[in-house]
């Protein structure tokens, strides 16, 4: 089976983000960038499916030239080849979904696997929009994926429990946290990844207009938390809750 898996370049989540002084975004200069962790899980699941069923795993990312690093990271884990759609600036979930759709139409994979959301904007929209635009079935928030013949069975994490659904390929799956533990890239894998093909496209070449439909007006740091207070006894605590916090 042929699998198209997407990876997004995001800030390392161990880095504390700083808002740019003009509020137009967060500072990314000199900040360590990684593969979106949910996408890493999507890559791992794609590799597992390939190991079981044979086929090919194609990694797709959207971003500047630097994003090649994240594609290579997925290739180092074992994916076969990469596609980079070159785009400066922010690409909103709708534009991303339409770009992935364009690549889908070129590649004709059996399955598209995405992370359920990216940890930078937490939108959780690209997978759903993609399925809609393609008119394909979608199984989001997957915690278990099984493939038998043409049928994909997915266990989803939903409010109040687990839901099991199935569809016939082609279709779209988005990966949740407990789907798997991504493997480490082996050194031989990292070496091989350097020689694997990464094709580049522009949005124009794919016939997609990525002008954002969503405009970010302003980003602000959350208000600094006030320091805690120690109170000598319960009476003072109740007094403060009533008079200062107005919580009682």
């Amino acid at each position: 089976m042929k699998i198209l898996v997407t990876v997004k370049r995001v800030m390392d989540y161990n880095v504390k983000p700083k808002v740019k002084p003009d509020g137009s975004g967060v500072v990314t200069d000199g900040v360590n960038m990684i593969v979106n962790p949910f996408d890493e899980i999507a890559v791992e699941e794609s590799l597992k499916l390939k190991e079981k069923n044979g086929g090919e795993v194609v990694v797709l990312s959207i971003g500047t030239k630097d994003t090649t690093t994240q594609i290579r990271a997925a290739l180092a884990m074992g994916a076969d080849r990469g596609i980079l759609v070159l785009a400066d600036g922010s690409v909103d979930p709708d534009a991303a979904a339409r770009l992935i759709k364009a690549v889908y139409e070129q590649e004709k994979p059996d399955l598209v696997v995405l992370g359920k959301q990216a940890i930078d904007d937490d939108s959780s929209q690209a997978g759903q929009l993609l399925a809609e635009y393609l008119g394909l079935p979608q199984a989001t928030f997957a915690s278990k994926v099984d493939v038998a013949g043409k049928t994909v069975t997915v266990t989803r994490e939903v409010d109040g429990g687990l839901e099991t659904i199935s569809f016939d390929m082609p279709g779209v799956v988005t990966a949740d946290l407990r789907l798997n533990t991504p493997r480490y890239a082996s050194l031989p894998g990292i070496m091989k990844a350097k020689k694997k093909e990464v094709k580049e496209f522009t949005p124009a070449a794919l016939g997609v207009d990525i002008a954002p439909k969503v405009k970010v007006l302003k980003l602000e740091e959350p208000k600094a938390r006030q320091a805690g207070q120690k109170v000598p006894d319960v009476a003072t605590l109740v007094g403060k809750l009533r008079n200062e916090a107005k919580a009682l």
Binding site: D12, Y184, A185
Partner: peptide
């Protein structure tokens, strides 16, 4: 790796 100084290896891809 070529000289067989290690049988396997990995390099961390993120701070995690």
């Amino acid at each position: 790796m070529e000289e067989g100084l290690a049988t396997d290896g990995t390099m961390a891809q993120s701070s995690q």
